[in-house]
Amino acid sequence: MKKLLLLLFSVSPLQADQVRVYFGTGAEWIYSSLFDTDSGKLTDAEKMVEVVRPSFITMGDGVLYSTSNKFGQQGGIAALKVAEDGGLSLMNEKPSNAAGNCHVSLDASGKLLFFANYSGGSVGAIALKEDGSLSDTVSMAEHEGSSVHESRQKGPHPHSMYHGPENKYAYAPDLGTDEIWTYRFDLSSGKLNLIDKAKHPDGGGPRHMKFSKDGNQAYVLSELTLETVIYDRDRETGKLTARDSVSNLEEGKDKSQMTCSEIRVSEDGKFVYAANRDLANKNRDSVSVFEVKTNGGLELVQVVGAEVWIPRNINISPDGKWLLVAGQKSDLVTVFSIDTETGQLEFTGHKVKIPSPMCVEFMAQKSE
């Protein structure tokens, strides 16, 4: 069995204007660079730790969590200790109990890790130990159903799972059933109790979602139709009701052989960003910029070329001034500056080579 190593000798020291950023990949390593928050430049990527296909990662308090294929058809999750200099070392790994683990996220308290098994049609929650490592306490929920797309929606395919603003409910967009499955969860046991299934537009294929700054709306990506659906959220019951949708592309643009991948909300809540993928490699990969209206609705204000092929993931720097785009098929991560007044993006020309980058996560910043 391959051993996961802490590579202290290869970790570059941080400077005052730098933040470490990690990249989940479709390769066998988690990579990392230092990001200069003044210039927008990334250092050459370093191999950090060997994991079996760490395609999605999320940052906790001194611990990085990753999907893993170590357990084959059982799926897997890895917990990795983050050293002060940003180095990584394996704490432990646990199976996710079904194939195709594609997403991990933490609840607001950092006590539970949620995960989604795309191929296995299930979601789950695993309790975390005091040191952030994974315990044996796992709660599972099986999805069932289908929808109208002939090849992509023959069965359930939960694609992600997130805690809601009050940290009472967890939401799991299911691409296969065209529903957002809503669970109440117990912090001590991780037990998931299904309370609702919000209907998504037929054939849309809900993938990832984020919440408005005030928590009154949820923005859900329709992977198969390149739309962002706006849901109103009942703060008491946690239930979602679809209100409207907006196209990720300008009217009349060709959406054939295109899908979308990741969605982000700016820290001030004024703008929403979504990544669009061109499966035909016709140079149509892009990032959409939406302005959030006073009623929580969205207005498309810009679509900018992603400067990569297959932007699998995007993320906003902690200072809110930069957006990084992970190009899965082009083996590139590109950097865009953000106009904080208008939300619009401009390509900086900065990029870094990384094998099959699929997720971007910034190292947690310590509070002063």
Rank of each mutant, 00 (worst) to 15 (best):
D196L: 07
A172E: 05
Y162P: 01
N193A: 13
S188R: 09
P156L: 06
G155N: 10
L187S: 11
S188F: 08
L175H: 06
W181S: 07
S160E: 04
H149R: 07
E166C: 10
Q153N: 14
H163M: 02
K154C: 11
L194S: 09
L175Y: 07
G190E: 01
L194C: 10
P156Y: 03
I180G: 00
E150P: 12
N193G: 11
I195F: 06
Y183F: 14
S151V: 14
K168R: 15
N167H: 12
Q153G: 10
T177F: 04
T177R: 04
K191V: 06
D186Q: 09
L192D: 00
P156W: 01
L175W: 05
G190K: 01
F185T: 00
F185P: 00
S151C: 11
L192E: 01
W181H: 08
G155K: 11
A170P: 09
E150A: 15
S160K: 02
D196F: 08
S188I: 06
Y169M: 09
K191E: 14
K168V: 05
H159R: 12
P165N: 12
K197D: 07
R184D: 08
Y169K: 00
E166I: 07
S188G: 12
S189Y: 07
Y183H: 11
G176D: 06
Q153L: 11
A170Y: 00
G176H: 04
N193E: 15
D186R: 02
D174V: 08
P173W: 02
G164K: 00
F185A: 02
L194W: 10
I195P: 01
S189N: 13
H163Q: 12
R184W: 07
D174C: 12
D178S: 07
K154N: 15
I180F: 04
S160I: 02
R152N: 10
S160L: 05
K197V: 07
S189V: 08
I180W: 01
D186T: 06
G155I: 04
N193Y: 09
Y183R: 04
E166L: 12
P165L: 10
A170W: 00
S151H: 13
N193S: 13
S189E: 14
G155P: 02
L187W: 03
Y171Q: 06
D178Q: 05
L192V: 05
L187Q: 12
E166M: 12
W181L: 05
H159T: 09
Y183K: 04
D178G: 04
E166W: 05
L194Q: 13
D174M: 08
H157N: 13
Y183Q: 07
M161C: 14
I195W: 03
N193T: 14
L187P: 01
I195A: 03
R184V: 10
N167L: 09
S160R: 01
P158Y: 04
D174R: 05
H163R: 04
Y162D: 05
T182W: 00
T177H: 05
I195Q: 02
S151R: 15
K191A: 11
D196C: 05
G190I: 00
Y162T: 03
L187M: 09
T177S: 14
L194T: 09
D186G: 03
I180K: 01
P158T: 05
S188L: 11
E179K: 11
T177I: 06
K154Y: 12
T177V: 08
Y171M: 11
T182I: 12
S160N: 08
Y162F: 14
S188D: 14
W181F: 10
S189G: 15
L192Q: 02
M161G: 03
H157E: 13
Y169R: 00
K197Y: 03
E150V: 12
D196P: 04
